[in-house]
Design a protein around this nucleic acid. Structure first.
Length: 113
DNA sequence: CCGATGACAAGCA
DNA sequence: ATGCTTGCCATCG
């Protein structure tokens, strides 16, 4: 990997996010690793914050922290929007945390075959 | 659940 | 350029 390029990094993030299957979710760190920057999970979060896609075409709600917690919920319309989007896909969220996280978790690495 | 530590680009003064 | 602070984070204790 060469030097860090913000544009490339952001685009790589968005590409992976767009691949997350409906009903599944992944984490900031998993995305960071998948695009070759294993220690830049926080920057994945920044990329998400600065993303400006039509919300019905970009599944930002499928990105949570490593524990399955909806740490980015404050960036949605209201405090329950992220949870509602996930639950509409069959994901159970209790106390701001995805239940059965182990199985809901989608590993981007296995998809970049 | 909290705190400390690690990681590192970006923003700012 | 230089330093300091911040950040939809992670891991460990």
């Amino acid at each position: 990997m060469g030097r860090f390029d913000k544009e490339d990094f952001y685009n790589a993030v968005y590409e992976v996010v767009s691949l997350i299957p409906k009903g599944r979710a992944t984490s900031y760190a998993a995305i960071a690793k998948a695009i070759g920057y294993p220690t830049m999970a926080r920057f994945v979060g920044r990329a998400m914050r600065e993303s400006n896609f039509p919300k019905n075409t970009f599944p930002a709600h499928r990105v949570v922290n490593s524990q399955g917690v909806l740490s980015g919920k404050d960036f949605f319309e209201d405090s329950t929007a992220m949870m509602q989007l996930l639950e509409s896909e069959g994901i159970v969220v209790i106390n701001n945390r995805i239940q059965n996280w182990k199985n809901v978790f989608w590993n981007p690495m296995e998809s970049i075959i």
